[in-house]
Design a protein around this nucleic acid. Structure first.
Length: 180
DNA sequence: CGCCTTTGACCCGCGC
DNA sequence: GCGCGGGTCAAAGGCG
């Protein structure tokens, strides 16, 4: 497996039409490993419609995707005793009216929890594709309810479920924040 | 009928 | 050890 797949519909076969210099926030994955998870919501001035920021959780960027022992359907003896290896997680902040960005994959909600110090609940989603264990969390920020924080965990092992033009659709919904 | 959301319970790690 | 908070499970119900 080669590095990390994008979270948005970038099929590995077909290249995106986007101009290279549009500098997707994902491009920089190996650069910024600061721990500033969701701590720096700023630079609103550059963001007329949406803000996307790439965030890294506890610098766990390096290393290849670790196969998490997916506990084989907790029906057996040792339920989830397997060593807990967290997959790397990636978070984005998007400024959006809707909580759920349609990123082309099919998600099933499996939980919702209220979070401390946050008046909005956090929702937990799992990719419904068979064998794909990707999860994501979606949460609206209290300090700025127009901001939605989406956290992805894992890498999709299958092509996108919806047509590619979807990405363009997303870009219409929001504008990628780029510092340059 | 199949897939999805909702929601309370349960599990687990961590700090005190 | 205990309590808290975050993450997951699974039953029940809704919807197309």
């Amino acid at each position: 497996m080669e590095n990390y797949q994008m979270f948005f519909p970038v099929s590995s076969t077909s290249n995106m039409e986007l101009p290279r210099n549009s500098q997707l926030p994902f491009d920089n994955f190996h650069g910024d490993t600061s721990n500033g998870l969701l701590s720096d919501v700023k630079t609103d001035k550059f963001i007329p419609v949406a803000e996307v920021k790439q965030l890294v959780e506890n610098g766990r960027f390096v290393g290849s995707e670790t196969e998490i022992k997916s506990t084989s359907a907790g029906g057996d003896c040792c339920k989830r005793k397997e060593k807990k290896i967290r997959k790397p997680r990636y978070a984005f902040q998007t400024r959006s009216q809707v909580d759920i960005l349609d990123d082309g994959y099919r998600w099933r909600k499996y939980g919702q929890k209220s979070v401390k110090n946050n008046k909005f609940p956090r929702s937990y989603y799992r990719c419904t594709h068979q064998g794909c264990n990707v999860k994501k969390q979606v949460q609206r920020l209290t300090k700025d309810e127009t901001v939605v924080l989406t956290t992805y965990e894992g890498v999709h092992n299958h092509p996108i479920d919806k047509p590619m033009d979807n990405f363009q659709h997303i870009l219409n919904q929001m504008q990628i924040y780029t510092p340059f």
